[in-house]
């Protein structure tokens, strides 16, 4: 297997070792290279995956399991992800990374954490959530608010309903957009559920990711509840090709999302042109 260590645009090779169907259009792929993980990834960082003869696309790494494998939860939304959803265990993929700044896991130490996700937006948050559980003593109370269109569209159900609620000093709130048979949980959109829960901003960091419209209303709700711009973190998405701040397209103002982002706090975002 050829690997050019010096050229950041040439991929390493990984193999898909497990595929989990999360929802009708989201699958989680566990991938490993000959040495285990192709590289170490911090929560919120990105990697460029390629179905080599088809295309490359950038994804948030939803978890690194020790030195064993990387996990990507991928929603089927376009040409490349359509093809990715057709592959089986054993398929080899190209991978390069890690890219981007990732979540400020150090700065958040000692804080209470509030995670607010919608749809596939839970995938990047999950890396931070699992990191908090792994280093449980470093973080205070953990609240997770997550919503999707329907029960079927909720990602990571086992963690949501079984693993996470049992963790020390942790609350998990789940909502779906519309009532459905067999669902006795909360119904409604994430921003309004957030206002109902009304989590106190004191000593807390809020981290959010989801559809742009959800993020917009979540930010408004947080502001109303008294969260400062420094207490609110989000992770952005733009089209990317190179991942190393050269190809040009993922800029917002003079920042490149692949390199300077994808994670920003609201204070940083407000200094950028409103293209996010």
């Amino acid at each position: 297997m050829h690997k050019c260590d010096c050229n950041p645009l040439v991929p390493d090779i990984v193999e898909v070792i497990e595929i989990v169907e999360e929802t009708p259009d989201v699958k989680t792929f566990n991938v490993k290279s000959e040495k285990g993980v192709p590289f170490d990834v911090m929560p919120g960082q990105l990697a460029m995956l390629s179905l080599v003869p088809v295309g490359e696309a950038m994804f948030s790494v939803s978890w690194q399991e020790e030195k064993e494998y990387l996990q990507f939860a991928i929603k089927r939304v376009g040409l490349m992800t359509d093809e990715l959803h057709k592959i089986d265990v054993g398929q080899q993929l190209g991978i390069r990374g890690p890219y981007g700044n990732g979540f400020p896991v150090e700065e958040c130490k000692g804080k209470d954490m509030l995670f607010i996700g919608g749809g596939i937006g839970l995938a990047p948050l999950r890396s931070f959530i699992k990191y908090c559980f792994k280093h449980r003593q470093d973080y205070g109370k953990i609240q997770i608010l997550y919503g999707s269109r329907s029960y079927a569209d909720l990602c990571f159900k086992e963690e949501l309903f079984e693993k996470w609620p049992g963790q020390k000093d942790t609350e998990v709130f789940v909502t779906i957009d519309n009532p459905e048979e067999g669902w006795d949980g909360h119904v409604g959109f994430v921003p309004s559920y957030l206002e109902e829960i009304n989590p106190d901003p004191a000593g807390k960091i809020a981290v959010t990711c989801g559809p742009p419209i959800m993020i917009k209303f979540v930010l408004q709700a947080l502001e109303k509840m008294g969260y400062t711009d420094e207490q609110v973190i989000t992770t952005l998405e733009m089209r990317m090709k190179c991942g190393i701040g050269k190809c040009g397209r993922c800029n917002i103002g003079s920042e490149y999302i692949c390199l300077d982002g994808p994670v920003f706090n609201l204070a940083q975002l407000k200094k950028l042109p409103p293209e996010w």
């Binding site: 390629s50 080599v52 003869p53 490359e56 696309a57 929603k75 939304v77 376009g78 040409l79 490349m80 992800t81 742009p212 998405e237 733009m238 089209r239 090709k241 190809c247 040009g248 397209r249 993922c250 917002i252 293209e275 996010w276």
Partner: peptide, 25 residues
């Protein structure tokens, strides 16, 4: 096959078109 790169232009819509349908420009 081979992977190649070629000049692109910020003048084109596809340049920032995302798979999910959103386009910031």
């Amino acid at each position: 096959g081979y992977r190649f790169r070629c000049w692109d232009s910020c003048m084109y819509r596809e340049y920032t078109q995302m798979a999910g349908g959103h386009n910031p420009r």
